[in-house]
Design a protein around this nucleic acid. Structure first.
Length: 451
RNA sequence: GGUCGGAUGGCCGAGAGGCGAGGCAAGGGACUGCAAAUCCCUCUACACGGGUUCAAAUCCCGUUCCGACCUCCA
């Protein structure tokens, strides 16, 4: 366990990966998507080096926040709060946002995981795991009837985050609220008794209740990946406590180091600030699309920063990405056609060197300008890189048929130009641009393309 | 208070002892009836103070400022 760059492990040519997925009570914003993209980039890079990848990403459709801590106003469980607000069944909310999550991933060209297990469908397995942890003496039933994990039972607790158990004194950041039921402040709930709750609760040996926040990932990753994952991915904020606790649970269950490499993606800021409802700067992929930008310009922008550095996204950078994407696609069609792929040492070096996507992007800009390379070679190198970058670089810039009324306007404008009727010509150009065309006048007359 | 990062041109961002990455914006030019798009050209930098070295944006010491995590979160 170290916090440095190391080689990804494999077993007989197979790399198993687990990525902490969304809690489906709202839309994923572009920051969430950055983390999901990270899993895709790692999976694609590993695949490009000739290894097989198995990727699992969970869907959290069981609220896990219930009064674990109190901040002013003490939100309860997020799923239930949203359910109460909208008066819709919590499971229906979950299904709705799950669908939108998959849609966002598809629009970002994220290759789907092999499985998207749901917390709600693994209840039996979670309960069995909790029973095993109690039998192991890693967990206990607290005085309030809930089940808690005994943090001190994990000798190496803190290996991921660097947090030492005895320095984890309560109350540095929040008012500490004594939950009463647990023996030690660093312990955490595996199963919470229902209390006054009536929705989203399940029967268990400890009475009706619901699972704690961390146990679902332990259980699903162990069960679906044969008790061992080569790579486990999540956002930086999950490093502590989620992954730390998950590791303690998983290792207690499998009696081994369950995960070889923990990868954490840094946060995305938007125009200098952390995205939050209160700051009013939450940006969804749909917002990017609504601005007339290709959703892959988000992917492009994210690729221009290293995954483990904090990144500031802005409309200016998305617009720049959109423009370059268009230029590259246009260049690709000019360079030729076909699917030939040319292995490029620099691209592969950048990607396998701790996923240096900015350098891979830089390489493409260099290739684009390199006059010693032939057009077909350029295209083939771009296609090679695109296997990981996933920017649909081979997609032709023009993809829609021209509607008849637009064609008529074009003809009208060609006539106006022939007549040197500039005011009419300019008016028509404005109309055509409004309709999404881009008009250019050159020595051979008027030409157009889709914006 | 603890732990870990960071400070590079108008802006975003790589680089980690010696050749000023790149992008955006800006200015100039080509093209155009005029534009847009595109192409060509131009411009500019390493937070501060010491030190090490033939040579420091890069290494060391100190200072200032910013951020992340420290039981909601991607």
């Amino acid at each position: 366990m170290s916090r440095s760059v190391k080689e990804i492990t494999q077993t007989d040519g197979l790399v198993t990966m687990y990525c902490c997925g969304p809690t489906v009570y709202r839309d994923a914003h572009v920051g969430n998507l950055r983390t999901f993209l990270l899993a895709d980039l790692i999976a694609r890079t590993i695949a490009l080096t000739g290894l097989e990848v198995q990727l699992i990403q969970n869907i959290t459709d069981v609220g896990h926040m219930a009064d674990d801590f109190q901040e002013d106003g003490a939100e309860g469980d997020k799923m239930l709060a949203e359910s109460k607000r909208t008066n819709i069944d919590p499971f229906e909310i979950a299904r709705r946002y799950e669908e939108r999550f998959h849609q966002d991933l598809a629009r970002l060209n994220v290759i789907p995981a092999d499985l998207y297990p749901k917390a709600s469908e693994n209840m039996t397995e979670m309960i069995a795991a909790i029973e095993e942890l109690i039998a192991n003496k890693s967990a206990y039933v607290g005085s309030d009837g809930s089940v808690y994990f005994d943090a001190a039972s994990c000798a190496s607790y803190g290996a991921i985050s660097g947090n030492k158990l005895d320095s984890l004194k309560p109350g540095h950041r929040y008012e500490y609220v004594d939950e009463g039921g647990k023996r030690f402040h660093a312990d955490w709930a595996l199963w919470k008794v229902a209390g006054g709750r009536t929705q989203m609760i399940w029967d268990s040996p400890w009475g009706p209740g619901f699972p704690g926040w961390h146990i679902e990932c332990s259980v699903m990753s162990i069960n679906l990946l044969q008790a061992h994952a080569n790579v486990h991915i999540g956002g930086i904020d999950l490093r502590f406590p989620h992954h730390e606790n998950e590791r303690a649970q998983s290792n207690a269950l499998t009696k081994q180091e369950t995960v070889d490499t923990w990868v954490h993606g840094e946060h995305l800021l938007f125009e200098g600030r952390k995205m939050s409802k209160s700051a009013g700067n939450v940006v969804l992929l749909q917002d990017v699309i609504d601005r007339g930008l290709d959703p892959l310009s988000l992917r492009f922008s994210l690729l221009e920063n290293r995954y483990r550095s904090q990144m500031d996204l802005s409309w200016a950078s998305l617009e720049a990405a959109h423009a370059t994407l268009r230029r590259w696609r246009t260049a690709m069609t000019e360079w030729g056609n076909g699917d030939d792929v040319k292995f490029d040492q620099e691209v592969i070096y950048a990607l396998t060197n701790d996923l240096d996507t900015p350098r891979a992007m830089q390489r493409l800009r260099t290739v684009e300008k390199d006059s010693t390379l032939g057009a077909l070679d350029k295209r083939a190198i771009f296609l090679f890189a695109d296997q990981v970058l996933g920017l649909d670089l081979a997609r032709p810039a023009i993809q829609k048929a021209l509607p008849a009324e637009i064609a008529a306007l074009l003809a009208e404008r060609a006539q106006a130009r022939a007549d040197k009727n500039w005011p009419t010509s300019d008016l028509l150009r404005a109309q055509l641009e409004e309709a999404g065309l881009e008009i250019s006048d050159g020595p051979t007359g008027q030409s157009w393309s889709w914006k």
